[in-house]
Amino acid sequence: MTTVVSDTGVGPLLRGWREQRRLSQLELALRADSSARHISFVETGRSRPSEEMILRLARHLEVPVRERNALLLAAGYAPRYAESPMDAPRLASLREGIERLLRGYEPYPALVVDGSYTVVAANRGIGLMLDGVAEHLLVPPLNAMRLALHPEGLAPRIRNLREWRRHLLDQMERQIALTRSESVRALHAEVAAYPAPEGAGDERTVGGPGDPGDPADQEAPYFALPLRFEHDGRVLSFVSSISTFNTPLDVTVAELAIETFLPADPATVAYLRSLPPFSD
């Protein structure tokens, strides 16, 4: 993704972020140790903010790292944050750490995506989900949202597709609101328009395995919305967790997300433990 700089200056850009975060000038001033008068002057262009002030306001407005560079450029300053390709030497320790984390999580599935949901790394546990996915969806670069929701992807095997689809679309909508990413906006429009696969499951998650209202639901409730999909004649259930890096100083690193899938019921745990260990 490229950084787009508005020709209207940094003031309107900062005002747009403030309004999106639903903060008044006074509220932002109090958080940033400034004054509402100064915030007003910055937004209207009557005062040129320092580089430090721009970064301070961006931090309190939770502006993504990529867009902080855009704010600096709009004010006439150099970008503060590099955007390194994943194979850059300076990210060698990051790549090594991610690979070690993914291997250590096996046989449970785990993957890493960038800000556009392109898969940049995955472990061998992900193969459980990719089994049966159409070949054209497996041509790099893989996209996690397309893999999940395309009618020739994982979607036909997801038992609670309606719930899981809504979860993924909501996730993308939150990201669009946070980052204003045009690439994610276009991806959202694409996957939201996918037709439901013929015969796709419409199971609803009530509280645990089995049918809605089954007593077993009360004995082993799910603690989060599970992804329930068919694999090799059985239904596997996972709940996902997403991790990001704290205070990143690189645009690429700031947009990485590590998603891990934890078995959500005893049957899934037992099946995964029955699999032969992966060999390097």
Rank of each mutant, 00 (worst) to 15 (best):
M1R: 12
T2Y: 14
T3Y: 00
G9V: 00
G11R: 02
G11F: 02
G11C: 05
R15E: 12
W17A: 02
W17V: 03
Q20Y: 04
Q20F: 03
L23G: 09
L28A: 13
A29C: 10
L30C: 03
D33C: 05
D33Y: 03
D33M: 04
S35R: 03
I39E: 06
F41Y: 15
E43P: 04
R46E: 11
E51Q: 14
L57K: 07
E62Y: 06
V63K: 03
R68E: 06
L73N: 01
L73F: 00
A75N: 09
A75T: 05
P79W: 03
R80V: 09
R80T: 13
R80S: 14
A82C: 07
A92P: 04
L94V: 13
R95P: 08
I98N: 11
E99R: 14
L102T: 15
R103W: 06
G104Q: 03
Y105N: 04
Y105A: 08
Y105T: 04
E106C: 07
A110Y: 02
A110K: 03
L111V: 11
T118Y: 09
A122T: 02
G132R: 00
L137I: 13
L138S: 06
L149K: 07
G153K: 12
A155V: 12
A155Y: 07
P156N: 10
N160I: 10
R162I: 03
R162A: 10
E163P: 03
L168N: 14
L169R: 12
D170Q: 15
A177Y: 14
S181V: 08
V184F: 09
L187V: 13
H188I: 06
A189E: 15
A189M: 07
E190Q: 09
P195I: 02
A196L: 15
G199H: 11
V206N: 06
G207D: 05
D211Y: 01
P215R: 05
A216W: 04
E219H: 12
A220Q: 08
F223W: 11
L227Y: 05
R228V: 15
R228L: 15
F229A: 03
R234F: 00
V235Y: 05
L236A: 09
L236T: 10
V239Q: 09
S243V: 01
D250L: 00
T252I: 09
A257N: 12
P266M: 00
L272N: 02
R273N: 14
L275G: 03
P276G: 05
P276E: 02
F278H: 14
S279V: 15
D280Q: 12
